[in-house]
Structures are given as C-alpha cells and as structure tokens.
Amino acid sequence: MSLYDIARPLLFRLPAETAHSLGHTALRLSQQTPVRRLLAARYAVDDERLHTEAFGQRFPNPVGVAAGFDKNAEIPAALAALGFGFVEVGGVTAEPQAGNARPRMFRLREDEAIINRMGLNNDGAEAVGRRLSRRDVDIPVGVNIAKTEHVAPADAPADYRRSYEAVADGGDFFVVNVSCPNSQGFEELQNRDAMAAIFDTLVDAGADPLLVKLSPDLPEPAVEDTLDLVAEFDLDGVVATNTSTDRPASLRSPNRTEGGGLSGKPIEGRATEMVRFVAERTDVPVVGVGGVATAEDAYRKIRAGASLVQLYTAFIYRGPAIAREINRGLLDLLERDGFDSVADAVGADL
C-alpha cells in the first residue's frame, strides 16, 4: 500500500477543489528541494521505446498531464519529476479570471469521474508567461489558450492573439481551446467561420506548433469542418477531447446531476472513438485525452491513432505513481505485441 492509498480517504473527505489545492501546493513546494530529485528517481521511466516525436517536439514518454491540472504553470517541474513526458498548462485567458462560484468541482467516486464547472479560473496570460519564462523543466510544456469570458465572440481572435503573445516565449506548443463547456461564449466559437478567424489570427502571430482541442460532443460533420480548417491553416495537431456535457446512463454517483464537464472513465470509450475518427481523417499528430487511467487505456488510444495521451482525473483517483504505472505497462504491451517503440504502435488498429 502506497502513501497515497493511505492519504486518499482523508483527502476525499475534503471538498474536491480543496484537496486538489493541497496536493498542488505540496508539489509546488517540492520543486525547489531535494525531494524533486527523489521523486524523479522513484517515478521516471527512462526507456528509448517510450521516446516520442510529434509536431517538432521530442517527448521522453507519451504520457502527459492535461490542461486544467496546472492552470497557472506553477508545477511543471514537479510533474516532470513524477514521470510525465509533457504538461499542458492552462486554460489561460488574456485577463485574470476568478471562475465560477464554488462548489465547482465534484467527485463521482463510484464512476471514477469528475464533473467540473471551474469557469477557466486563472492568473491571466501575462502572469503565466512570466512563470514559463523562468521554468526549470526538461520536458515539453504546452499552453492551452482560451477566450476571456467577457469578450464578445466577434472579438475573440484578438483576445486569443493577446494571450498567445503573452506566453509565446515560454511555451513549446500551443493549443487553441474553443471547446470549454464551463465558460460563456464558447458554443459560438465552434463553427467554421469563428474558428477560421481565430486560427488565421494566431498563425499570423506566429503561433507554432499550433493545435486545436475538440469537444467530444461535436457531431461528426462539425468535427470534419474543424479538420478541414486544420488542413487549410496547416495546424500541427489535434487534441481529442475536452470534457463532456453529456451524462451516460451508466453513471451511479449522486453527483451525476451536477452541471459542468464530465471527465474520467465514463468518457473513455467515446474519447477513444473520437481519436480514431480524427486519425482516420488527418495526417497531423493526435493527442488522446479522456478516461486514461491504465496502460491499457493509453494503449487503446495509441493504437487508435494517438501519438500522445493525457490524463487528469486518473491522477486524483490513482495517485502520483500513475505515469510510472502507465509507462511500465506500455512497455509490457509493446513487447507483447512485437512493437519496437510507441511510434510503431500508433494507429495499429486503423
């Protein structure tokens, strides 16, 4: 039994956001101490078969942390020490935002899921950009860029550009978030003309590598429209997917009726099918996110076409050893199926 197994019942007695803040603080404090090296020695898995290249970046392994976990770029070094191959910070907005009223994060313990309606609370792009410029981390760090809530959809392209320019020097790749279900105005951005204007502005600003994050709730024609724009603007990748506003009938937790975006095991199958759908229709790398909790979950997304995978919810339920467990498990699965590397397994089921 790990220390996290002992601590988890105590943490789960606290409100979800409070527990997350405590864990976040512990990781932040560890970064400037010898604990960071001890964590890396315990959790990092260094094996050439896990090394991955995508959109011009080199990743020590394909398992990353999804946007939302480290909103303000405060703990990339600690997450690297826990064995993750990359981190996506944010969502970041041009102006600081307090987000929605609490409570705004809910555990669905029976379903190994989370519902959040955080509302893109963050310190603002300038503060995040300053932190990124001082970062001490040797894994790629991406920045998820979103629309400031009070900004009208017509003014969204300039707002995204302002955010990008504030974080440009510190990010290794940039993700356009037009699919957040927990902040006002995003539904109006999920159409071809609105996205084209945002992409055009960011490409003109020099954003590179540039990816777009999709909603799992988009109908297939809307996904195809987005992929047409990915090709038109020569974007570098697709993140599939964000959280979902749908509520599967299988949910058992009393918190299933809360509003917000659902993440975790209940959306794993849907997210993997979105990865497959996207990978069959584009040649750019796909980042698979949604319900990744085990090596088998990650491997399904990789075989469905994901070059990289991300997680968030599983960190809460499985603890700080999760990247190590998934990476070790991936090595076993690669060996079982005769693949020499993760790259060889990408899209094996297509």
Rank of each mutant, 00 (worst) to 15 (best):
A7E: 04
P9N: 08
R13H: 14
T18Y: 08
A19R: 11
S21V: 11
L27A: 06
S30L: 03
R37T: 14
A44F: 01
R49P: 03
T52E: 10
T52R: 10
E53L: 04
G56I: 01
F59T: 07
V63S: 13
F69Q: 04
E74T: 04
L79P: 06
A80M: 04
L82I: 09
N100K: 12
R102Q: 13
E112K: 13
V128E: 05
G129K: 06
L132E: 09
L132K: 04
V143Y: 13
I145W: 03
H150C: 01
A156R: 06
Y160G: 00
E165Q: 07
G170C: 02
G171N: 02
G171Y: 12
V176L: 14
S179V: 01
E188T: 10
L189A: 12
M195L: 13
A197P: 09
A197W: 12
D200K: 14
T201D: 09
D204E: 15
A205Y: 07
A205L: 11
L211S: 07
P216N: 09
L218C: 09
L227T: 14
V238S: 08
V238K: 14
T243N: 10
L251T: 11
S253P: 00
T257M: 02
G259A: 13
G259H: 11
T272K: 06
D283C: 04
P285A: 01
P285Q: 02
V292G: 06
Y299F: 13
R300K: 10
I302L: 07
G305V: 02
L308N: 05
V309A: 07
P320A: 05
R324C: 07
L330N: 08
D337S: 15
F339P: 08
S341W: 03
V342G: 15
A343Y: 08
L350V: 10
